[in-house]
Simulated assay, not measured.
Amino acid sequence: MPVPASAMPAGAHGPSTFDKLKMGAMMGGSVGLIIGFIFGATNIIRFGPGPNGMLRTLGQYMAGSAATFGYTS
């Protein structure tokens, strides 16, 4: 919900559309990293790291999830 004009000081402007886009992408990417870490770690514990090793497999989960959440937010 936008801030009413009477609550903002004279001459103040809100964030631009590009600023809102950047903030949404950063927030989505951060959430994606955390979700990717949780699900990646869970899958590595359950099924093993596979041929790529633990860190690379976890990184792939985190990067894929961050890209998905960052793009869609």
Rank of each mutant, 00 (worst) to 15 (best):
T42E: 13
N43T: 05
G29E: 03
Y61V: 02
R56S: 15
G50Q: 11
Y61C: 05
L55H: 11
A25Y: 00
R56V: 15
P51C: 04
N52L: 12
T57Y: 03
N52H: 07
L58T: 13
P51D: 10
V31C: 06
P51N: 07
F47P: 00
G59T: 07
P49T: 08
M26H: 04
G24D: 02
R56C: 09
N43K: 12
N43W: 04
F39D: 10
Y61K: 02
G48Q: 10
F47T: 08
M54N: 11
G40Q: 03
G24M: 02
G40K: 03
Q60W: 07
Y61T: 01
I44H: 00
T42W: 15
G48R: 09
G24C: 01
Y61G: 02
V31Q: 05
F47V: 03
P51W: 02
M27H: 07
F39T: 11
I35A: 15
I44L: 04
G32C: 04
P51E: 12
T57H: 04
F47K: 13
R56W: 11
F37S: 04
I35Q: 06
G40L: 03
P49A: 15
M27Y: 07
Y61I: 01
S30K: 08
F47A: 14
G28C: 01
M23S: 11
A25M: 10
M27K: 11
N43S: 14
G48H: 09
A41F: 11
I35P: 00
L55T: 10
Q60H: 10
N43L: 09
G32K: 02
K22Q: 11
M54P: 06
A41H: 09
G59W: 01
F47E: 14
S30Y: 08
I35L: 14
N52Q: 07
F39Y: 15
M27D: 07
R46C: 04
I35E: 02
Y61N: 09
L33W: 03
L55I: 11
I44E: 00
M27P: 00
P49E: 14
M23F: 13
P49I: 03
L58V: 14
L55K: 12
M54C: 13
M54Q: 14
G50F: 10
L55F: 15
G32H: 01
M23A: 11
I34W: 03
